[in-house]
């Protein structure tokens, strides 16, 4: 059995930043493994530890720089990795979930996994649609926002919980093959062990171009044309001074409101 995990690197902006064109200037960005994908990796690795003969393969869209993040996923227990890239994507933010899904679909068709785990969304652009779009493109079943997963290999079924709003979960059976988008909190992602980090260096990491996987992307119909920092709507009355001063002013305010009396 094979599990494919989509792994994305996301950009986190500093508190203070400047916008350059339609993106945040690179010196204000820090790149890291997407939080949701961390949970997806952990879920796949846990399944591979509980069952025999499960291969965990990661798939990432990105330039060479993302290999550091991919090695992190390998160090946490994935068996091998695939990176898809073409230099023509340099400097572009791919916002079209259909396009992203098309690249992933090329790999899914090649690898033929039983299960694809994908983060609910990426922490930077937060489109939140790639996993389900991928399922539709490759003819897999799917479920979005999964926060519990029990795999029954014999029946080819995943018993899952979907995290709805307001503290309600939907209990659903999903027939495999399927794409599940994984919500944070589904497990406790591990830290990579030193041994894992060493092993990751020798695990296979294949680089492919869209042509290699038989995908030709059309020009996207959606384009980011402007990026602005929203005007602050803040009307907050600030208590000023040292920690003791501000705490004193807040305490006085709270006492006036009958708190702690």
């Amino acid at each position: 059995m094979k599990i494919l995990v989509t792994v994305t690197e996301v950009a986190d902006a500093d508190d203070e930043f400047e916008i350059s064109g339609t993106s945040i200037a690179d010196q204000y960005l820090t790149y890291d493994l997407n939080e949701w994908d961390d949970y997806a990796i952990e879920e796949a690795v846990q399944i591979s530890e509980e069952h025999d003969d499960i291969e965990v393969v990661t798939i990432t869209f990105g330039a060479e720089r993302v290999e550091e993040t991919i090695r992190t996923a390998l160090a946490k227990g994935a068996d091998r990795a695939i990176r898809v890239w073409d230099d023509s994507f340099e400097g572009q933010t791919v916002l079209d979930p259909s396009q992203k899904a098309r690249l992933l679909a090329g790999v899914v068709e090649e690898e033929d996994p039983d299960l694809v785990l994908s983060g609910v969304q990426s922490g930077d652009v937060s489109i939140g649609a790639t996993g389900v779009a991928l399922a539709e493109q490759v003819g897999y079943e799917w479920a979005a926002v999964v926060n519990q997963l029990d795999l029954d290999r014999d029946s080819g079924n995943a018993a899952i919980h979907r995290e709805l709003e307001g503290g309600v979960e939907e209990l659903t059976d999903v027939e495999l093959p399927a794409v599940l988008t994984i919500q944070t909190g589904i497990n406790e992602p591990r830290y990579a062990s030193l041994r894992g980090i060493r092993q990751a260096q020798s695990k296979p990491l294949d680089v492919m171009s869209p042509e290699d996987i038989g995908v030709e992307l059309e020009e996207s119909a959606i384009e980011l044309t402007e990026l602005v920092e929203p005007e602050s709507e803040s009307n907050t009355e600030l208590f000023e001074g040292s920690a003791e001063d501000t705490a004193g002013q807040l305490a006085e305010f709270l006492r006036e409101r009958g708190v702690g009396a």
Binding site: A11, D12, A13, F17, I19, T22, I24, L95, G123, D124, V125, S126, A221, I222, E223, L224, T225, E226, L227, V228, E229, P230
Partner: peptide
């Protein structure tokens, strides 16, 4: 975009 730190205009062609 970027966790609410910016707002983007996306043109639909």
């Amino acid at each position: 975009l970027y966790s609410g730190k910016t707002e983007g205009t996306i043109d639909v062609d």
